[in-house]
């Protein structure tokens, strides 16, 4: 199969040091640790890019600052930045993010996934597609797509 890569030569950034949680020695047994930005970021940072063997973190598609979490309101909003403006993979990346969070966050959460403003040619179309429940469900009925998503998610479970 000879297919052109959409972004043949992406810039690869360094991975950020995994911030070790400074676990207090004597944590109170019944203390509550709310879900926070870093935790959500840890869920998605290792997702593989659909066309390169790099993680979304390495390609700076996802950064920790682009994640907004409100544990009280059960709300997460992720803004990701495709590497090139006309990236047709944007929807796949968005789908991966959504599936990963579906599988990792409690069901009470509402997840909102958007493309960073101005980073994609058909921004509003992509946003609409990613946040349409029906279309996401339909996409996950497609075995090819599910295979692709699972492949991208595999490294994030290690």
């Amino acid at each position: 199969m000879v297919s052109e890569l959409i972004n043949a030569n992406p810039i690869v950034y360094e991975k950020k040091e995994r911030r070790a949680r400074s676990a207090p020695i004597a944590v109170e047994e019944y203390a509550v640790e709310p879900i926070d930005q870093q935790e959500v970021f840890d869920h998605v940072r290792d997702i593989k890019d659909p066309e390169h063997p790099y993680s979304l973190e390495e390609l700076k598609v996802i950064t920790e600052d682009a994640i907004e979490v409100d544990d009280q309101q059960s709300y997460v909003r992720i803004t990701f930045t495709p590497t090139v403006e006309h990236c047709s993979m944007a929807t796949i990346i968005g789908l991966c993010l959504r599936v990963k969070l579906l599988r990792s966050l409690p069901s009470r959460y509402k997840v909102d996934i958007r493309v960073a403003p101005g980073s994609h040619a058909s921004e509003s179309a992509v946003n609409k597609q990613l946040n349409d429940k029906e279309r996401v469900a339909a996409a996950l009925e497609n075995p090819n797509l599910v295979d692709m998503v699972d492949e991208c998610l595999a490294p994030s479970y290690d």
């Binding site: 640790e33 935790e39 966050l105 409690p106 069901s107």
Partner: peptide, 10 residues
């Protein structure tokens, strides 16, 4: 397990 996803501890 889906209940444990909402556990109070990380």
């Amino acid at each position: 397990i889906s209940k444990a996803l909402d556990d109070s501890r990380r």
